[in-house]
Computed example of a mutant assay.
Amino acid sequence: MQSLSGKKIAILATHGFEQSELEVPLNDLRDAGAQVHVVSLEEGQIKGWDESDWGRAVPVDVTLSDASAADYDALVLPGGQINPDLLRVEEKALDFVKAFWTDKKVVAAICHAPWLLAEAGIAKGRKLTSYKSIRTDMINAGAEWHDAEVVTDQGLITSRNPGDLKAFVAKIAEEINEGRHERRAA
């Protein structure tokens, strides 16, 4: 994977994130030299979901109320069913996601996390993928849905499921190193 030395990345999550979808990007991006912060609604820890039951807790580095997209080069949105569903009703979370997009920074979402892209108005007119159970939601949000491991569209990276994590993280590194992305109207 490409070096991310000097880069700062936010991972926005709350309780119920899919364990591997937060931990693998967190660890791999840190191993590549990035400073990575877990951003959440509350201080302390958030608890993951590990396949069929509650998983391990992860420490929160920055609360959403103290976070600014201006401080980061990219945003990662882990999935799971619970996490993005809780976040997509939080106006501050949607504003945080929109700020990255507006600033032409990399936004990466996996599995069910494209729900946040739809709610933030980012999915419309964009090529993306997601977990198959939310395919219709993405199409209804105006996205051009693809059944592919990883889909990239002008700095928007999506992946369909946790089996694709290494390719997903490698694409995040590649897109961050390309810098800000021009965004043509959808």
Rank of each mutant, 00 (worst) to 15 (best):
A173W: 08
E178K: 15
K132P: 14
S52I: 12
L94R: 01
R180E: 15
S20F: 07
L4V: 07
Q19P: 00
W145M: 12
P84K: 08
S65V: 12
L75V: 05
R30S: 15
G80P: 11
R30H: 11
K171Y: 00
A185Q: 12
P78I: 08
G79Q: 06
D53E: 13
G163R: 13
A170G: 12
V106L: 08
S5Y: 03
A67W: 06
A113V: 10
E174P: 01
A34E: 11
D71L: 08
T14N: 06
R183Q: 15
P78K: 04
G48E: 05
L156V: 09
H112G: 05
R56C: 08
E42A: 07
T102N: 14
I46D: 02
A34T: 06
Q2G: 02
S133E: 12
S130M: 08
V107F: 12
V106K: 01
H112Q: 11
D103Q: 15
G142I: 05
K166E: 09
A118L: 00
A185Y: 10
I157Q: 02
G16L: 06
S133A: 13
D50E: 10
R184A: 15
V107A: 08
A185C: 09
D28I: 07
W101H: 13
H181I: 03
F100K: 00
L116R: 03
A74W: 04
A185D: 15
H37E: 15
S68M: 04
F100Y: 00
A34G: 00
M1G: 14
K104C: 14
N27Y: 03
C111D: 13
D103R: 06
H15E: 14
E91H: 06
S20E: 14
D95R: 07
G179E: 05
L128K: 04
E42L: 09
G55T: 01
A10H: 06
G179Q: 11
K92F: 01
T152Y: 06
V150H: 00
T129H: 04
R180D: 09
